[in-house]
Design a protein around this nucleic acid. Sequence first.
DNA 1: GTCTATAGCTTGATAGAC
DNA 2: GTCTATCAAGCTATAGAC
Lengths: 193, 193
Amino acid sequence: MTDGTRERFLDASARLFRRQGYAGTGLKLITAESGAPWGSLYHHFPGGKEELGVATITRSGRRYEKVLHNLAAEATDTAQIIEDYFQLSVEALAASDYADGCPVATVALEAASTNEALRHCCAEVFASWQLALAERLEADGLAPDAAAELAVFALATFEGAVMLSRTARDPGPLRVSARLTARAIRTAIATSR
Amino acid sequence: MTDGTRERFLDASARLFRRQGYAGTGLKLITAESGAPWGSLYHHFPGGKEELGVATITRSGRRYEKVLHNLAAEATDTAQIIEDYFQLSVEALAASDYADGCPVATVALEAASTNEALRHCCAEVFASWQLALAERLEADGLAPDAAAELAVFALATFEGAVMLSRTARDPGPLRVSARLTARAIRTAIATSR
DNA sequence: GTCTATAGCTTGATAGAC
DNA sequence: GTCTATCAAGCTATAGAC
């Protein structure tokens, strides 16, 4: 295996950062949940908490980028891809008692004005998701500018809807936003032809 | 005066919670920035940090609800109100070096799974904003259900767009989302007639 | 090289002097 | 009643034993 201990650290911190945020999660708790000894954290992440945070966010970003690409490979309709992605979040929230929202959002807001390395990392993850969506929309015939704008719009709506659903403990905002976002995308594609 | 010291605590904590989050902001820093003596915090907020957090979020919620109502009183076009609200956020971010985003969002995500009192308080604030928007959309002739859904959708897009703009240090996501949200609202109002 | 034990700080909260 | 001084517990990071 490549390095099981490092992976266990990343798994634990991904789970905890997503639910409690970056500042609210201590390294002690992360090591305890990972099952690894305390000292090995600084062996695998010499940069301490910040390096662990950046690695965790980057990995979560790549993981969901793949989910997005997998959905894009299966579905034929881009609006349907969006609805599927929202639906995945509805299910993740229901399965986790509304704990598992976006793995990046909480850290992004915390770090935006307090930790430049972490902020930059979160920004790149959001940009990668936006790009994946924009590429799919271009394939539907939208002009590059229009595709990029619609992708930002869809991503913003998704992030906000997850926040509202998680805070209210109600899948409603995600469901409603999924439908209206899909409608906006269908309209945009239709009018571009 | 009613109580200047209490107000100063709330001002300081509102500013700090918005920028650094709840877990990332210590009571020591809040008292220091408020200029009040350490002991008086527990005089005004016997419930400690949690009570201060709830009071801060509730006050911020009421404040922006008023902003929304003021915009609604001035503008004739609901889509224009939305665009104005987005624009206010663009200006707040620019004026604060991308520090002042939504005063509730960061705390909402941090507290959603860790602090029930705070989560509930954030949920009520979001609900109050949604209601204010929905009332305005009903006044435009939308059916109650459609108005409520469009209000959730607009609020979600706004919250997500603030997050993306703040993280990327770029007003683009807010600008694009403002335009597309306004378009969706105009379309919904037009087709309902 | 691995990891335990601990240093040095900061946190939220309170006892007790005034 | 007001507030200072202090508390125990948590934090991140590291020195040094194996």
